[in-house]
Simulated assay, not measured.
Amino acid sequence: MATSDDYESLPESVHPSIHMAAGALAGIGEHCVMYPVDVVKTRMQCMNPNPHAKYRGISHAIREMMANEGIFRPVRGVHVVALAAGPAHALYFSCYERMKILLSGSSQAGHNPLANGIAGCFATLFHDALMVPADAIKQRLQIYASPYSGALDCLRKIRRGEGLSVLYRSYTTQLTMNIPFHSVHLIVYELFQDELNYSRLYDPLSHVISGAGAGAIASAITTPLDVCKTLLNTQECCLASTGGPTCSLPNNPNITPTTNGNTVLATAEARGLISAVRVIYIQGGIAAFFKGLTPRVLYQMPSTAVAWSCYEFFKHFFAGKPTIL
């Protein structure tokens, strides 16, 4: 039986490179495995979807994409995420592991919810600095009838038409979403672990259950901010003259609120979180902030389960501790 000093069966002196290597592999696995569901989420959050991009659910969306746009359409842009997820998650997990020990001490690491939440905030700053531009490119490739032939073409057109700074246009929104997301996620994960695996031994089932539960709760809470991020990244509130991707813009682009609030289109580009909130509310009311809730939760549950189970496995494997292999 492990004692309270055997933090996750690993000594405090474990080199950060172990956490970084385990985190990189976990991040790549997480994003690649669940990427098709992420594509569906992006399309379902579209404020003005193309008539050919309206779906009844996740399975229907994937079938329609494969039938009408090609068998590989649900994974278009996955390489962009894979390239960014490795270093982003390496920094994320190594920072989180180090900060929670510094904030709560090695004997209580993982058992102090406040320390876990604060550590998550710091880890998110490093993670998002790398993932935000990748997300912007990825989501532009994910939308229906994307005007880009690939990631490099997208990057070139952004540089010429809008400037590379737009890749970080959703950074504030992303941080506003991801700081509470990852704080809640990490707090809930460690609380689950306190109940299922207090001694922090390598226990695959507890890591899967804890990861899935934490991902579901955190993603549901932060869905409205994810909708704002999608709007900013795909530029759906821009005029067609901006050169950015648009989704079935009506002939009259004036803002004309109706009684049901569903036929409104903004005439100006949303440049930040506040303007994105305004545009979304005008177009669809409160309900619009929860578009894509189901695919987001269904994406995050297995995604975080995969991430944590992979991370814990590789962390113990690289440290020479017993695993299932």
Rank of each mutant, 00 (worst) to 15 (best):
M1R: 08
A2H: 15
S4W: 06
D5G: 05
D5Y: 09
Y7E: 00
S9A: 15
M20A: 14
A24T: 04
A26T: 03
V33Y: 01
V37H: 05
T42K: 01
M44I: 07
Q45N: 05
M47G: 07
P49Q: 06
H52S: 15
A53I: 07
A53D: 13
A53H: 05
Y55K: 09
R56A: 11
I58F: 08
S59P: 00
H60S: 04
A61T: 04
E64I: 04
A67F: 08
E69K: 11
I71E: 11
P74E: 06
V75F: 15
R76H: 14
G77P: 12
V80F: 10
V81Q: 10
A84F: 11
G86Q: 06
G86H: 08
P87N: 03
P87W: 09
H89N: 15
H89D: 11
E97R: 10
K100F: 08
I101F: 02
G105I: 02
S107F: 00
Q108H: 15
Q108I: 03
H111P: 01
P113Y: 08
A119P: 03
H127A: 06
H127D: 13
L130H: 07
M131L: 15
M131H: 07
P133V: 13
Y148H: 14
S149V: 12
A151I: 09
A151F: 06
A151L: 06
L152W: 14
D153K: 08
G161Y: 05
R169Q: 12
S170N: 04
Y171V: 08
T173M: 04
L175M: 13
N178Y: 12
I179D: 00
P180W: 01
S183N: 02
I187C: 11
E190H: 13
F192C: 15
D194E: 14
S199R: 13
L201H: 10
L205Y: 10
H207K: 04
S210M: 03
A214G: 02
A216F: 07
A216R: 00
A216P: 06
I217F: 11
I221S: 03
T222G: 02
P224T: 08
D226N: 14
K229H: 01
L232D: 05
N233T: 12
N233K: 07
T234Q: 09
S241H: 09
S241C: 10
T242S: 15
T242M: 09
T242L: 10
C247S: 15
P250V: 13
N252P: 02
P257L: 12
P257Q: 11
N260T: 14
T263H: 13
V264S: 05
T267H: 10
A268L: 13
A268H: 12
A270R: 04
A270M: 08
A270C: 15
R271M: 11
R271D: 12
R271Y: 10
S275V: 09
R278H: 13
R278Q: 09
I280D: 05
G284Q: 02
G285K: 09
A287T: 14
F290T: 06
L293D: 03
T294N: 03
P295E: 07
P295T: 07
R296I: 01
V297K: 02
V297N: 02
P302L: 04
T304W: 11
V306M: 13
C310V: 05
E312Y: 10
A319P: 04
G320T: 08
K321Y: 04
P322L: 05
P322F: 01
T323Q: 01
